[in-house]
Structure formats: structure tokens, C-alpha cells
Computed example of a mutant assay.
Amino acid sequence: MLLPDAVQANDEFVVNTNLTDLRLPAPDLLTLKPVVNPLFAPDTSTLTPSSGSGPFAAGVMTAKGRVTGFDSRAYGTFGIPYTTTRVQDGEQSAAGTTTANYLSTTYPYRAIGKLTFSAGYCTASLIRRSVLVTAAHCIQTFGSGSNLFTNFQYYPGHYGASGATNAQIAPYGIWTWAGLVRPSSWANGTDTGSGSARNNDLAVIAVAKNSANQFIGDITGYLNYSWNNYSFVSSAKTGNLNTAAVTTLGYPQLSDGGAILQRSDGPTYTTVVSGASQLWQGSDFTGGASGGPWVVNFRSREAALTGGAVVGTAPVISVVGVTSWGSADPNAPKDNYASQFGQNTQYPNASYGTYGSGNIASLLNTLCTSAAPGGGTYASQGYCN
């Protein structure tokens, strides 16, 4: 198909006629200047996203050949693109290698781990020196009052593929809990929403010190947290949708049997489902990923900027929500949702102690001002640093 008034291109092949160039002395790579496009940049102040995919059929070339059209398993019928990958280095199996779990033991991945308890397992992440955040439904069934699950244990940096060693399964040891806080509206079944979509499907857990009297965060490091949709933006360039680039992590059962940490990246949007403030994204995460962090500005290290470059606004890596629910179908529609961290009907205040705004701040304030083992509060003992 040709577009009106289109001029077809004539490609040109250029041959290197002086193969001695290959034997020139290697340049000093540190002194080479970067090349930039010399053409002027057009005005993008009124740019808006395209509303369609265009007039041509999409396709992709793989090692097995050309693939055309759309496959519902690629991003489901939900219509939001994403990518998912194992957080793994080295061989596919842990057997015979010590490097397969290397990546999951680097920061910030090692601040995320598997949370086991009497009903099964979820995912959790460390957001203070010794405080985890996870989903409230990983603590107790909605509306079950004082009936909590039991025997909470946390495996930071967990890698449990077939043949994994004990050092890979629990590279930083197995940690138990000292106390937790979940929303009372979750416990008594009055939280705003319907079904699995709720305002406040989140909870925080104080992790007890280990036998060497160490805090877990001093070993693994920990993530930041934020509220009221930090780092999200709405503009003409996003089609006036409130969106952010979000990395979601967890141990979904349908990917590697939940044995290996998975990472999903893509655009995330704010929305309201049955009155509940939600984050939503395309994702193939399923059960086991519950409680896993939704992270903005996910990265391992800061680049050293030169030439007057700045990182821009809202650049801090932080958790903005945790996986709450999504499609149980492994092929469609491939969607995931999280309760928004921030102010809502149950948590309207802009300030809860020194911990920020809304639900996440209130839970932390309640936990950190509670009595801790050995006297004082969790805050005064250093758990909440």
C-alpha cells in the first residue's frame, strides 16, 4: 500500500574499499565526542499521541522467521503493552551454577522477596529499614476480623529454581515478623469498592532483627515509598491520561512456578473501579505476585550527568502501590490492579505523623509508634528509619 504523494526510497549499499581501516590504532574511547543529529528539532509543544496503529500491518522478525499480525498472548485483550522477564543471570536452571541468582541479589532487586505464611505465599518489598509492604489480602481474608494468617516468613532475594542451593533460596537468610498493621476497613469488610477492587489492599510488617541483632535493611537496602500518584503525569502528550512508567515485580505462580522473581515494565494508569482508587496496567502476573511492588523510576544506579543535563521532576525510585488483583486467565485479558497509595475516603489526611499522606502513611505511623521488642517504639528502635 502506498500513501498519497509518497516517494519511494532507493536504498544504497556502500562497500568498504580500504580494509586497512580495520588495522588502524584503536581510538581513545574516553576522548571521543558524541555525535548528535545536526538537523533542527521541530516544535513538539502541541504534539499529541496517535489514535490508531497506522495503515500498515505490524510484524516482528525472530530467529525462527517473520511473525505478522497480533497474538492475544503478547499483550492480551486489555490493550496496554508491557514486557515481562525473569530477574535472572546465568543458566536457566540453578543446577551446577552459582550465578543464576546473581541479578536478584543486587540492589534494588534484593529489597524484594517472597513472603510465606499459613495460607501460601505472596511477594513483599522493604520500604523502611525493617518494614515490609505487601497486600492486605496476604495478611487476612477480607472482612475476617481478627482472624489473621500465621507464620509469616520473608525470603529477600529468593531464587528457587530446580536445583537451587540453600544459599540461593535464602541468600540473606529467612526473616520472621515482629508486628504488622492492616487497614481496619479491610479487617471489618467495609473498605470502599467491590469484590477484589478496594481502596486499601495494603499492609505493613515490621521484620524482627536476626540472631546477630541486625536489621534486614542494613543488609539488603530498601526502597522508598510515595503517595498520591507520585511521578504520574497527565498532558496532551499522554492523551490527557494520568500515566507513569512503572516496573512491577513479583513471584507469579504461572511463571517458572513462582520460583524466580519476575519483572514487568509498561505504562500504568490511574482509574476508579467500583468507587475504589486503583492503578492499572497490562501484565501477565497472576497469583503469587500479590503484594509485589509497583515502582516508578526503577533503576540500579544513578548515571553521572554532564553538559548541564538534569534528571527532571519526580525522579526518585519509589513504591506507589502493590499488586492487588487481576485476570486469572493466563492468556487474556492480562491486566493487573493495585490500590493507590495515598489519600482516600478511609485515609483523608494529608499528614500522618512524619510518614506522609494517606493510607500508606497512616499504616506506617501506626506501626512505627507502637511498642517494639526491647522497649520503646519501632521508630525509636530504628525499624522505621
Rank of each mutant, 00 (worst) to 15 (best):
Y102S: 12
Q281L: 10
Y159S: 11
R263N: 01
V15D: 10
E12L: 15
T286V: 09
Q253R: 08
P333S: 09
V233S: 12
D265Q: 11
T176V: 09
N344D: 15
A26C: 02
T105F: 00
S184A: 12
T306A: 08
L126N: 05
S72L: 06
A164L: 08
G282R: 07
N213F: 03
L305R: 08
Y347E: 11
Q343D: 05
S277W: 05
L24N: 14
F149I: 00
T83Y: 09
L364W: 01
S162K: 10
G65L: 10
G374C: 05
R110G: 02
T190K: 05
Y159H: 15
L103H: 01
S324H: 06
I205G: 01
Q253H: 01
I317Y: 04
G160P: 08
G69Q: 05
R110D: 05
I260F: 00
T141K: 10
V319N: 02
N242V: 08
A63Y: 07
F152D: 00
T238S: 15
S235K: 03
T46R: 11
G312S: 09
T68H: 03
S362W: 11
G54C: 11
T369M: 03
L364C: 01
T85K: 15
G353N: 07
F215D: 00
N336Y: 02
G145Q: 09
F149G: 01
S357R: 10
V322L: 04
G145R: 08
F70K: 11
S290V: 08
